[in-house]
Design a protein around this nucleic acid. Structure first.
Lengths: 210, 210
DNA sequence: AGCAAAGTTAAACAAACGTTTAATTTAAAC
DNA sequence: GTTTAAATTAAACGTTTGTTTAACTTTGCT
């Protein structure tokens, strides 16, 4: 658990945005330095290398994700379906709230070559699966959820849908209702739409009710 | 509709694999030339530039996708749900059959900067949506499908799930049944698993039956 | 004030990048 | 067999890449 100076945070923030928008190899350290308004040498000075800068971004975000997971583990008073719905909403909020990082994840998980970053990704995904699995299993044993469900694939659908929505937002704007929207309103509109869709999907497949 | 020589096809094939595995900017023309066993200059000679090489790959694959779409449009004798199921299976087959290209699409659709390639992607996605939309609408009007369904989001789920499965295959191998599998058997196993999952999901949400 | 460490800078580094050149070989046409 | 165009090559092109250097400034401590 390290702390970062303002300047370091500025670099991390700019780098995250540029890596998301143009890819890791599509972004030069000079681009980052210029937009963050620091000297090029500071990136190596602070983070060691461009690779380690990416790794730092990952560890930074993943630490937050771990906390996020642990918080979710504490909700014990809810009904199974309420738990699932809460989980869906929290996932949507989390992932759409850090879209730049999610873009980087989308990209990096495609790399065929093994790397520390790729390992971190699948480690985290495993933990997320471990979050939903027991809820479903428990509800299945209690006879509340239907037995014949592939939870791993359901998690894949959850991730996949949200990851697909992130770059699709340009398009969703066109099919949105004609009412004028500022950025915040549109963000809420998207969240609501994904949330409604995923909750319906999960409820239907898990409980066979509507 | 152009034709390509063997050497050109060799370059396209190698480039597609490398772009998928390491990203566009992560792959050098020297890498491509070496693996395709041609001189570096041939790439500029044939395709003009590295950018146009990527664009060529896209146009090549997209032409096939267009044909694919037109074939799907001709199935008129089936029941609505059969049509959907057939569509799901064909999508899975298509996309898992060209995984390298789908990886490139996954990456390129994240680019924030406008480009010919990005336009092509969303154009194609629109066409795919236009493929499912009328089937659903027609069945809704006939009272066979439930009214309250967000087809655009459903299509997002379809794409998202499959796009998420492609890089997740390493992991799926671990949770696969212990029976020994060669590559072809595993590929079939994955297809079957995704297919079963998606069909259940679509049937539940569209018909409210199981 | 004086000193040591940390922070910051412009400049330079070698390596890798995409692309082009000019020379040579191959193939096809007459 | 000669000619013309296409294919292929090794080498060089000028940039850009990530990283390092060495000089300089700021900061914090005694």
């Amino acid at each position: 658990m390290e702390e970062y100076s303002e300047k370091q945070l500025a670099i991390l923030k700019v780098a995250e945005r540029l890596f998301a928008d143009q890819g890791f190899h599509g972004t030069s350290v000079r681009d980052i330095a210029q937009e963050a308004d620091v000297n090029i040498a500071m990136i190596s000075y602070y983070f060691g290398s461009k690779d380690k800068l990416l790794e730092t971004i990952f560890r930074y975000r993943m630490e937050a994700s771990r906390k996020f997971i642990n918080e979710l583990l504490e909700n014990n008073t809810m009904e199974p379906l309420e738990k699932i719905n809460s989980l869906i909403d929290r996932f949507i909020n989390k992932m759409l709230g850090e879209q730049y990082f999610q873009c980087i994840m989308s990209r990096e998980q495609l790399n065929s070559q093994a790397s520390p970053v790729r390992d971190l990704i699948w480690e985290l995904k495993g933990e997320m699966l471990g979050l939903m699995q027991p809820i479903v299993t428990q509800a299945q044993e209690a006879g509340i959820f239907y037995k014949d469900v592939d939870v791993e694939m359901l998690m894949t659908t959850l991730f996949g849908t949200i990851h697909q929505v992130i770059p699709a937002q340009h398009i969703l704007k066109k099919s949105a209702p004609a009412t004028v929207m500022n950025d915040d309103e549109f963000r809420e509109y998207v969240k609501k739409r994904v949330s409604t869709h995923l909750k319906k999907l999960f409820k239907a497949i898990l409980t066979h009710e509507f």
